[in-house]
Amino acid sequence: MSEKDKSFEELMGELETLVSKLEGEDLKLDDAIKHNERALKLIHLCRDRLDSARQKIDKLVRTADGGFEKQSME
């Protein structure tokens, strides 16, 4: 799964896990460096998403065949 397909929640979840791992004591230096790099990348990704976010608002309506259709409310 590429980073783009991951939800904000998944990215944040991974970040929070890494941060708590890094805050723990017993980490090999290699792992610590790897985790640290990844955490910084995740922060970057999350920040980018927040910065570029523009709220999408849809109205959900029932169609004749019983399905759903979204109509933009903006």
């Binding site: 927040l50 976010a53 523009r54 709220q55 849809d58 109205k59 959900l60």
Partner: peptide, 18 residues
């Protein structure tokens, strides 16, 4: 609701059933 959501966390998509 829309005002507050877009101010706080515009990343979220909103779907309204009126």
């Amino acid at each position: 609701i829309i005002n507050i959501l877009s101010r706080r966390f515009p990343l979220t998509e909103l779907v309204v059933i009126p």
